[in-house]
Structure formats: structure tokens, C-alpha cells
């Protein structure tokens, strides 16, 4: 494998998240959750670090607003730990995404993460400990249930 030559400019594209997060505040505020300007920058930095750690690149819109949208109405998510939890979820999302080898879509993965988060009453360890096989196993069970409903 040749050494990657994607330049730093691509990384800069990843850092334009703050605008998207500002828009998310309008939605999450309905559930008592907001990010300050400082927190938004911290989340943006965390996202860049998570992408680097996972060896991934994200173009255009980020998956972080999707995470906020999916989790903001969880009764287990509190304002005091909102920024830190969002950071942990971001790390877990990109790591799991990387493990999935393109088998799981963003939306499907976020749905599983949310289900796990609620099932363990806001237990982040359970979410970060999710494995691809557990996600795919859930998918097959869903398929069986759907078949049974027909």
C-alpha cells in the first residue's frame, strides 16, 4: 500500500462543523440540551480526532448532527454531561463505522447505538462496547421479526 497523499486541506474540510452544530441547538434545546460556542468547538475537535483515530475522512455534512438528532430526546442524556457524552458517542460511531467495512449505514448504526444506550439506561460503556457482530445479529433478528409480521 502506498503512503496516503491526501493533503491536509481535506482535513480542513472536516473542521467546518460548528455551523451545523449551531443549527442542531435549535432542535436539542427543546429537550433541555445546548452546546455553548466553546463546547461546539470542542465537539468539532473531538470529531476530527475521532476520524483520525479511525483512519476515516468525512466530506460535506458530518454524522455528528445525526447523532444529536437521534439522541437528544433520550431521557438518559442530561445537559451536565451532554458535551462529554456527545464526544464519546462520536468516538464510538466512527470506530464502529470503521469496523463495519461499509456493511452498516450511518442511520442503521445510530439507531442501534441509541437502542443500546436506552437499553442500558444511558450506559455509554455498553454503546462503546458494541461490536459489529452484535449489530449485524440485531439486524438479522429484525429481519426475522419483520418476516414474522407479514
Amino acid at each position: 500500500m502506498e503512503e496516503t497523499r491526501l493533503p491536509e486541506v481535506l482535513r480542513r474540510m472536516e473542521e467546518s462543523l460548528s455551523g451545523e452544530l449551531r443549527a442542531c441547538n435549535a432542535l436539542s434545546a427543546r429537550f433541555g440540551l445546548t452546546l455553548s460556542e466553546e463546547a461546539m468547538q470542542a465537539v468539532a475537535r473531538r470529531r476530527v480526532a475521532a476520524l483520525r483515530e479511525a483512519g476515516r475522512i468525512e466530506f460535506g455534512k458530518s454524522a455528528v448532527p445525526k447523532l444529536i438528532e437521534a439522541f437528544c430526546d433520550s431521557p438518559y442524556l442530561l445537559q451536565e454531561e451532554y458535551e462529554e457524552t456527545l464526544g464519546e458517542l462520536t468516538d464510538a460511531f466512527y470506530a464502529l463505522k470503521n469496523d463495519s467495512m461499509g456493511e452498516v449505514s450511518d442511520d442503521e448504526l445510530i439507531e442501534k447505538m441509541r437502542a443500546c444506550y436506552d437499553a442500558y439506561e444511558g450506559g455509554l460503556d455498553a454503546v462503546t462496547g458494541l461490536t459489529l457482530s452484535a449489530i449485524l445479529r440485531g439486524r438479522r433478528l429484525d429481519d426475522v421479526e419483520e418476516d414474522g409480521d407479514e
Binding site: 500500500m1 475522512i57 454524522a63 463505522k97
Partner: peptide
């Protein structure tokens, strides 16, 4: 990249982007 992932994913591995 978006076409490649068919909108399923906002991100791809570095190697895929390369």
C-alpha cells in the same frame, strides 16, 4: 464519495478516499 457510499455514509476510510 457520496455516490460511492450511495448516501449511506458521510465518511469513508482514508484508503477509500485515496
Amino acid at each position: 464519495t457520496e455516490r460511492y457510499t450511495m448516501g449511506d455514509s458521510t465518511s469513508v476510510r482514508d484508503e477509500t478516499a485515496e
